[in-house]
């Protein structure tokens, strides 16, 4: 009994229960159990980390009490920089680091604007979302750029960003797991994690206890920026090109992944396990329903419904355990 109570006192427990249920249901009820077929798992594992890695960062930022809607534009912006650097004859590795740096700078800009103007980040990053997309469209003329020749299939960088470990495990999953572990240590075991939670939960208290809350927020924005840069390179290498429509809609998908994972929209509440599961849950719902031959046009309705139900469930469990 005590164990059960303890289990439910973890906010991510509801996400875990639903996640396991989904996996079991889809494994049993998809025709020919195709859900757990190696091809399906490999396909899922190759694709979901594009958004998943960004969602991990968004989760940390949300715990800190802020949003970043600009990811939908920072991602293609970094992708454009990555492609452009390689076309300018820099090696893929150099271009990759430039892309991460640009991501960090765009995150820094989001952070500084939010902290200095004291405006809600929902507004400031909505602004930068549109601003960077506009700049990107003008600068790139929206023309796709092929980078296949710079990172041909089998080249070291291609293997690192879009290769396969074995038939089941594409390398993208490994990256997702690595980032989840790093951010988990940061959030739950590092003192900076305590500053993130305190800042998001009660900024005045954190400030009074001598935590530089503005700096903490700015760093969280930069973490999101760097992850966007990483995801941008990973996605472009897989696609073999830069495309101006990369990242469209990622901003709200990342937030719903975090919310499904039990992250509070008001900050201070959330866990890496929850965010990790949340980032997996949305693509699994999408994939599983299609595999169950649900008409594809209805998928959005299910994901919308799932998001609302998850929040209700989380709130319910929270009330029950307190």
């Amino acid at each position: 009994m005590n164990q059960t109570r303890r289990f439910y006192s973890f906010r991510s427990s509801s996400t875990l229960v639903v996640f396991v249920t989904l996996v079991v249901v889809f494994s049993i009820f998809t025709p020919n159990h195709i859900f757990i077929n190696e091809r399906n798992i490999a396909a899922l594992g190759k694709l979901f980390p594009d958004l998943g890695i960004i969602a991990l960062g968004i989760g940390v930022l949300m715990i800190c009490g802020e949003f970043d809607l600009s990811v939908g534009s920072v991602l293609p912006f970094c992708s454009f920089i990555f492609a452009q650097q390689m076309i300018a004859d820099f090696s893929p590795f150099v271009s990759f680091f430039v892309s991460l740096l640009v991501g960090a700078i765009l995150g820094l800009i989001n952070g500084i604007i939010t902290v200095k103007t004291k405006m809600p980040s929902f507004i400031t990053t909505l602004g930068t979302l549109m601003f960077w997309r506009g700049i990107l469209y003008v600068w790139s003329k929206m023309m796709p750029m092929s980078i296949r020749t710079f990172v041909p299939s089998g080249s070291p960088f291609q293997k690192l960003m879009a290769g396969n470990l074995n038939a089941y495990i594409p390398v993208q999953v490994i990256w997702f797991a690595i980032f989840a572990v790093i951010l988990s240590i940061l959030l739950h075991f590092h003192r900076f994690g305590n500053w993130i939670y305190s800042t998001g939960d009660n900024r005045d208290a954190a400030h009074a206890m001598g935590i530089r809350t503005d700096l903490v927020k700015i760093i969280c924005f930069m973490i999101v920026g760097v992850l966007c840069g990483f995801s941008a390179c990973m996605q472009s290498v897989r696609l073999g090109s830069f495309a101006a429509t990369q990242g469209v809609g990622f901003e709200f998908k990342a937030i719903s992944a975090c919310v499904i994972g039990g992250t509070s929209l008001r900050g201070g509440i959330g866990s890496m396990t929850g965010i990790f599961l949340g980032a997996l849950t949305i693509p699994i719902i999408d994939n599983g329903l299609i595999l169950m031959r649900v008409p594809v046009f209805a998928i959005s309705a299910f994901i919308g419904l799932a998001t609302i139900l998850f929040v209700l469930l989380n709130n319910y469990i929270e009330r029950k355990t307190r």
Binding site: N194, W195, Y197, S198, D201, N202, D204, A205, A206, A208, M209, G210, I211, S264, G268, I269
Partner: peptide, 18 residues
């Protein structure tokens, strides 16, 4: 209202910032 972070644990609150 300004001393503690409500959703953080007791020990994380006591050592907040230190």
């Amino acid at each position: 209202e300004q001393a503690l972070a409500p959703n953080l644990s007791i020990s994380r609150n006591i050592f907040m910032g230190r």
